[in-house]
Amino acid sequence: MNKPVASRWAQQFPQLGTDPVPVEALLSDEYFQREKERLFKRTWLKLARVEELPAAGSWKLKPLPIWDSSIILVRGQDGQIRGFHNTCSHRGNRVIWAQDGHGKDRRFSCHFHGWTYNLKGELTHVPQEDEFFDSFCKADNGLAPVAVDVWEGFIFAHLDPQPAVSLKAYLGEAAARLSGFPYGEMTAVYAYRTVLNCNWKIAQDAFSEAYHVTTIHAGSFPEGFSAKLYDVQLFGPHRTSAVYMDDKGPTPTPVAALSHRLGTTSIAKRGTRVALPPGVNPTRSPNFAFELSVLFPNFLVHIMDGLYFTHQFHPLSVDQTLWEGIQYFPPPRSAGERFSQEYGQVLQRNAWLEDTATMEATHAALKSGAKKVMHLQDQEVLLRHHYQAVDEYVRG
């Protein structure tokens, strides 16, 4: 058997229902504001990879408009990664004046009045400190922290410095299923980002089902992938499933065939998938393409043998989203492997361009008010689960 038998997901997950889904959650600014306060400010969000902070003093600045803040991630002299609001304790100016970026420093100094902080966020120097009053205590005025924790090299942060739920407990079984993949060995990175004029859930929906593959991706992957999902698992607000290739699959072009022969780093290459966690493609079917996983609320991880890629959707407003798509490969060991990687990442990039081409038009059309609901079919089960998980936070 090349792949498992497709299930009827509505029968397996009756709690999700089969009713049409209202589009209010995509268009209402009131709903978006509740998402901001009740969802994004109360859950763990992925911000970076540990490879981005390789040594003591390494820092990365991550703007998070959904938190009304930007976050400084820094690796201390003790090796620990910490997170702080990019806000000086004096008069609230930015400590790092760039909009985003990364670097390496032994300390952070506000350019406005020179207040200086060490890698632990402690306030270490205040010019003319003797001019302040008895109510001022330097030890009490370090940078405001956020909670930071790491799973499989991914750095997550929580707005509450002492969240009620740890990252491990929050990710739960979803993290257990995806743990053990060699994420840290894949350090050749290709990253894309753009601002899309659509709600963040519309953007995320486009990467959460395979129903669209035979139409949108007819150019990139003609007859390549099944339009069905397999092995769907729901873990609280998180979800995962498998995507398989068609039994026959496409005949590779000469360039694709050369890329497949020289390396394993193409999403369209058929072969035995071995470098996977035990729960992913347990039969080691050669038709397995990738695991499609969503770590709630807005981080997608897709793993396969030889590479993985991620998507993240940062809400900017009810109708604007910053999308980041990143592909991760092992460092190439030869010119042939480099060629294979370049071919694979361009193919995947082209597919992402096909995906993102649908999003703004969807939002613009829905704004007309002509349609009040979306009719989701059985293979769009991940979308149905997503809207229910979001709504439980927003209305709960």
Rank of each mutant, 00 (worst) to 15 (best):
M1Q: 07
P4G: 00
A6E: 09
A10E: 10
Q12A: 14
Q12G: 00
G17Y: 00
T18K: 13
V23Q: 06
S28Q: 11
K36Q: 13
K46G: 01
R49D: 15
G57P: 09
P63T: 04
W67S: 01
S69D: 12
I81D: 07
R91T: 01
V95L: 08
G114Q: 06
Y117K: 04
N118V: 07
L143Y: 11
A144V: 13
A147F: 13
V148I: 07
Q162T: 13
P163L: 07
A164Y: 05
Y170W: 15
A174E: 05
F181W: 13
W200R: 01
A203F: 08
V213N: 02
T215I: 13
H217N: 05
E223L: 01
Y230C: 01
R239V: 06
R239S: 15
T251V: 14
P252Y: 13
A268F: 12
V274T: 15
V274H: 14
P277S: 08
L292H: 02
V294F: 04
L295Q: 14
P297Y: 02
N298T: 04
M304L: 12
M304T: 15
D319N: 11
E337L: 07
S340W: 11
E342G: 03
Y343M: 06
Q348D: 00
A351P: 05
E354H: 00
M359G: 03
G369L: 12
Q379T: 00
V394L: 10
